[in-house]
């Protein structure tokens, strides 16, 4: 059905057959507020997914459930073959395979850019420092700021900080990257430098789940666009279809609001 269709779309654009993230009937409440309602979502390896929707629709919560920054109360989340439960070992294992980029960067301000990048490889992967630094410099070069390695995060611009955050996540060689509104806290002229890095990452075949309002990014990069409202997945489709023929009235309204200006 819809799922199969999406799968076909994914396969067509180079994603392979392997399921990397699987959510089935996931529900979550904040107190009495039902923030996620019966979410079913299958992500294939290499797939690029953009999640959009009005604020409060649960899109951030959804991707934060995938690495257990938020706990879901019912349903099942399986990441790379491991089910998320209360088992702390499993949680740490999944988190080390899933990279995340936050809206507010969340770099460690007391560590230099390079130290930010090597921290997790050294302490989680037990990688020797020298090797970790080599890997970190590779990724810092890829996000085009190797010359800032010795600086502290707060000495950089917002765009540079976010690129460091991407490099930091990549240093763990993650199987999936989660982006939680990565450009929303940036000044307009810095959005592009971050999006460019993300586009390149997508081109290299990284599996990505991206909460963003950058519809241009969704058009060029996404294999699938998901629209959420009030804790539900209202509609998902290939970007051409999604933007050209939104099926539901709610989606049409949302698109007219964010594309209309």
């Amino acid at each position: 059905m819809a799922q199969a269709g999406n799968r076909a779309a994914s396969l067509a654009s180079g994603a392979d057959d392997e399921v990397i993230v699987q959510l089935s009937r996931v529900n979550k409440w904040y107190g009495a507020f039902h923030v996620l309602k019966d979410i079913d979502l299958t992500v294939y390896r290499g797939e690029r997914i953009v999640i959009c929707g009005p604020s409060g629709s649960g899109k951030s919560t959804l991707i934060r459930c995938i690495n257990r920054l938020e706990e879901h109360q019912c349903g099942q989340i399986v990441v790379d073959g491991v089910e998320l439960s209360n088992d702390l070992k499993n949680i740490d294992r999944i988190r080390s395979e899933v990279g995340m980029v936050f809206q507010s960067f969340n770099l460690f301000p007391h560590l230099t850019v390079l130290e930010n990048c090597v921290l997790a490889p050294i302490w989680v992967r037990r990688m020797p420092r020298r090797q970790a630094e080599e890997v970190a410099m590779q990724y810092l070069t890829r996000v085009k700021i190797p010359e800032q390695a010795g600086k502290f995060p707060l000495q950089l611009s917002g765009g540079q900080q976010q690129r460091v955050a991407i490099a930091r996540a990549l240093c763990m060689n993650p199987k999936v990257m989660l982006f939680d509104e990565p450009t929303s806290a940036l000044d307009p002229e810095m959005i592009k430098e971050v999006l460019d890095v993300m586009v390149e990452l997508a081109r290299e075949g990284m599996t990505m789940l991206c909460v963003t309002h950058e519809m241009g990014f969704a058009r060029t990069v996404a294999d699938r666009v998901i629209f959420m409202d009030r804790g539900e997945i209202v509609e998902q489709n290939r970007p051409e279809e999604f933007f050209a023929n939104p099926k539901s009235e709610r989606t049409r309204l949302f698109l007219s609001q964010i594309l209309g200006h």
Partner: peptide, 16 residues
């Protein structure tokens, strides 16, 4: 709170 979240997202445990 973002600091602990970022550390958690990288796979660091409580003590680390």
């Amino acid at each position: 709170k973002g600091q602990t979240e970022a550390a958690a997202a990288l796979g660091l445990g409580y003590w680390s």
